[in-house]
Design a protein around this nucleic acid. Sequence first.
DNA 1: TCACGTCTGTAACGATGCTTAACGCAACGG
DNA 2: CCGTTGCGTTAAGCATCGTTACAGACGTGA
Lengths: 242, 242
Amino acid sequence: MSTPARSAPRREKARAATIDEIKLTALTHMRETGTLDIRFADIARAMEMTPPALYRYFADRDELLSALIADAYDDVGRYVAEARDAVPADDIGARFLAIARSYRQWARQEPQQFALIFGLPVAGYVAPVDGPTTEAAQRAMSQLSLLFVEAIDLGVLAPPRLRDVHPAIAACADQKNQHLATEIPAETFQAMLHTWSTLHGFACLEAYGHFDWIDEAGRDALFDGQARLAAEAAGMPAPKSS
Amino acid sequence: MSTPARSAPRREKARAATIDEIKLTALTHMRETGTLDIRFADIARAMEMTPPALYRYFADRDELLSALIADAYDDVGRYVAEARDAVPADDIGARFLAIARSYRQWARQEPQQFALIFGLPVAGYVAPVDGPTTEAAQRAMSQLSLLFVEAIDLGVLAPPRLRDVHPAIAACADQKNQHLATEIPAETFQAMLHTWSTLHGFACLEAYGHFDWIDEAGRDALFDGQARLAAEAAGMPAPKSS
DNA sequence: TCACGTCTGTAACGATGCTTAACGCAACGG
DNA sequence: CCGTTGCGTTAAGCATCGTTACAGACGTGA
């Protein structure tokens, strides 16, 4: 049976640790090679195991990949949420900046995981069931929308720079609003998407090395400017603290 | 010898045609599979040839990949330039919109080529010599900077929304200005980078399917809004024509 | 017509990877 | 103390793929 014993806390712990080690080894290997390629042979070698042993933990290569993708979802979501929550709840502007910066930093630190989620599908991998791609969008965005809700509740959100909203976008906004306590106006919903696109663009270009010709200080300043523009356009207040 | 005969116009033509067919077949295969994987076996099969025959045209798999990447550079540059030049030279705002839209459209039509240039390096492929990645940045951006130069020369470029420029960015601007007749102010240079990031972000998200939950009309409107925001922030005039 | 270069196919080598099957070992529970 | 369970190894099968070597076919130019 593939079902693990139901009463063996010690075993299960070891098993979970091994699973984590496998995933971590896979990630490390991706970081070292700079690609999204993972081979059971490589992982096994790095763990001083033999390839077939891995099949005790993952049915096949795709299952490992799926797990990595799922983890990446969680990682970026947690990373961004933590950065946001580390800033006083009453300083919405600073919270916005924290989200923006953490999104960028995550992409920089983990370009492979970033690509895993936001890049082209990996070779030979078929996405399980319906659109985890869409789910990635949802989860990444949800942290941002939470902040917009906070801003609305605190009454500090100015109207966004762009006021006219296409009916199709308004419809999307309505649909999303059904899951929220505080209603997000369509213009603000649109501004959120603009914000995300803007920050994502910078993160992509930088993570994949297209800004390497600008030194780090310049990139930092450039990004903060981009974030400030985005905040301004979305009606987000300026940060109180530096 | 790998050197093709020096006097055989007919042969050379056929050879060039075959090379083009190989590259096109490779692209087609990438489009169909949705990945960046290319295998000599697949290409050969699609062309009703045998794998070894391909070695007459490309020394190895990497050489083919390099050629595809180089082509992608050219393609996007040409595509964007043509779109821009199809608009009256005195309507800078419309020209800007044309560039923005064509960049997005290219990414949408050719997500694989887009990823080839702007994504993570392909598995098992080592970039020849120094940073073609950087070159991609240069070439894509150059079409945009040409437009900014036009705008400056016509005196229709307003100061960008963001005025303070970090010294590191100013230094980059100075360096780029050495290759241009018309000097681009540092703030404008910075605004160009912001513009590119913004448009690129939307293009990435859409090309890789993260906006699939918005219907096409909505995406079109969303993008135009994004472009308008970017133009406004960069000091670009509004289009005269619709 | 004949020799040459070019192109292409057949065959084969070597490496690599995914995956399954069968066996041995250690820990755990009664 | 013994059976069960889970984990890991060895061995093997299978499928590819990249690449090279060799030999035949074709068109070209003298």
